[in-house]
Simulated assay, not measured.
Amino acid sequence: MDRYQDLRLLPDPEFPPSVLLNALFAKLHRVLVELPEGRPGISFPGYDAAQPTLGDQLRLHGSGHVLAVLADREWLRGMRDHLDIGTIAPVPATDRSVLVRRVQAKSNPERLRRRLMRRHGLSREAALVRQPTREGERLVLPWLEVRSTSTGQRFRLFVDQQVHPGPPTAGVFSPYGLSATASLPWF
């Protein structure tokens, strides 16, 4: 991950930044599904968990080759008028890294019971004992509205971004550009 590219949303009177960021992320997800190996990671320089917002910028992190392959795929078609697209540049020296991961809430007890029944062969009554009805977990994190390319379902993808001292940790990134273990340079 020696290169990066910034994609900054331009102000638009018709669309709020969240709508444009959702559209940009949807396009990115579709192209990352086609890259089974060497997927780039993403970070959000304007991330603010207190607001909560992802900001108006998405940063791609990867090798120069992978970022060039993405640029050749024309995945930004239809978004170019809404973006300031930075050049692919070397990552500056830094002593911090960022972990950008997906967080899933366990907020639907009925779904959790069905999962228990399916995975453990439990009866409905036994699943109800193990997963009682109660108020579900509510996440207060920035999120993106996503349509899964595999199932077609729409859902909220909650994003947790944490900056840590030290160098980035190598690893694999999902088709969303996120990882539970791999971190990226933070600058």
Rank of each mutant, 00 (worst) to 15 (best):
V19T: 13
L35S: 10
R138N: 03
R8W: 09
P52L: 01
S174I: 01
S63V: 01
L28Q: 12
A180M: 04
R96E: 15
D160S: 10
L76Y: 12
P109S: 02
S18L: 09
Q104Y: 03
V159D: 11
L35W: 08
V19K: 15
V172T: 15
E137M: 05
L144S: 08
R119E: 14
A23D: 14
A105M: 07
A105Y: 09
N22T: 10
R30E: 15
L35D: 10
G152N: 06
D95T: 13
T181K: 13
V129P: 01
L139N: 09
P165F: 01
L20P: 05
L7A: 13
V129F: 03
H82M: 08
L112P: 00
G166P: 03
T53I: 00
L20K: 15
H65G: 08
F173I: 02
R130M: 08
Y47T: 05
L9A: 15
Q57R: 14
L67I: 02
G55K: 07
P132L: 03
E137V: 01
L7K: 12
G171M: 09
A126M: 05
T94H: 12
V98M: 12
E135N: 08
S150N: 06
L10D: 15
V140W: 06
S174Q: 10
Q162R: 14
W186L: 06
Q51W: 03
L67N: 10
R118K: 14
P92D: 12
A26P: 01
H29E: 13
Q131M: 05
H120G: 02
G62D: 01
I42M: 02
F25G: 06
F155I: 04
T181S: 10
M79I: 06
G64S: 11
L54A: 07
V33I: 09
A126I: 00
P142T: 05
R134Q: 13
